[in-house]
Design a protein around this nucleic acid. Sequence first.
DNA 1: TCCTCCTTGACCAACTTTGACTAAAGTATA
DNA 2: TATACTTTAGTCAAAGTTGGTCAAGGAGGA
Lengths: 155, 155
Amino acid sequence: MRNMSDIIEQYLKDMIERSGNEVVEIKRAHIAEKFDCVPSQLNYVIKTRFTNEHGYVVESKRGGGGYIRITKVETHSETEYLLHLQNLIGESISQLNAEHLVQSMYENEVITYRESQIIDAVMKREILSLELPYRDILRAKILRRMITAILYAKE
Amino acid sequence: MRNMSDIIEQYLKDMIERSGNEVVEIKRAHIAEKFDCVPSQLNYVIKTRFTNEHGYVVESKRGGGGYIRITKVETHSETEYLLHLQNLIGESISQLNAEHLVQSMYENEVITYRESQIIDAVMKREILSLELPYRDILRAKILRRMITAILYAKE
DNA sequence: TCCTCCTTGACCAACTTTGACTAAAGTATA
DNA sequence: TATACTTTAGTCAAAGTTGGTCAAGGAGGA
């Protein structure tokens, strides 16, 4: 018995998968009606579950014929995908965004579950134990370096 | 008549067993009501009887649709070894010693090559970028936490 | 008695739902 | 065109729903 946001998240991900893992285009009000919730709940779902760090790109348009389009980031080229993530990290990253990003790597089968657990462990603010903003900067440095290790780990 | 905590402990363990010795997901308030106790008693039971050392992993989520999930993990043969290493690390460790230790885990087939590369990446002094002795302390904290992740990674 | 473990509740933190208000884009009309 | 109206989506903060922490006090045994 999950909550509405989880259900909508799953519904959208199913749609994306059925579309051949590419893209889904919805009408906000239509989905809201289908699940009997307020339209802005869709914005909440998107903001918390379909961010860049999660590996999605969201576009939208208002007015007549408006839409929300969610595109899953291409991961055909693993190298390109990882470089993209490193770019996303930049000089600083929050724990939450880092975790989203790690989850994305796992879901895209770029890392194993165990690897995701190992990486997540280091992302915790209580482990990095520095004051902001230095903590987020250190986290970014570590995460970028770990991704580099993944990129070049050839046995 | 035993105490409430023991009863709840048994109840949860029975649930886990009935699930095929795997996992149980509960709502804190619901169990509290069932046993007519305050919700925080569940936290006490979990903290004293379902720890990692006991062989359980506990996850939870707050807010609507919140839950507490308890998963039983089988203790590997290398558990002793990893606990020993954590002991060895202590409060502080140099880059060199850390690398030796990671190498040892790899040679003992407790981690994969890729995992060793990922862990090594974070051990570098230029990544941790703090002054001594804080750098060695941070490294120890990170390494110990990563080993914990390996110890209790489900799946 | 003393010590350890258990129970309880006040306070806190995280996550979700809701709706009023806002902004943008399309459409009709003067 | 310019303007007004309609149709969408976006933002934000308040309220609601869970679980977490901590410390004080209680119960029971050595």
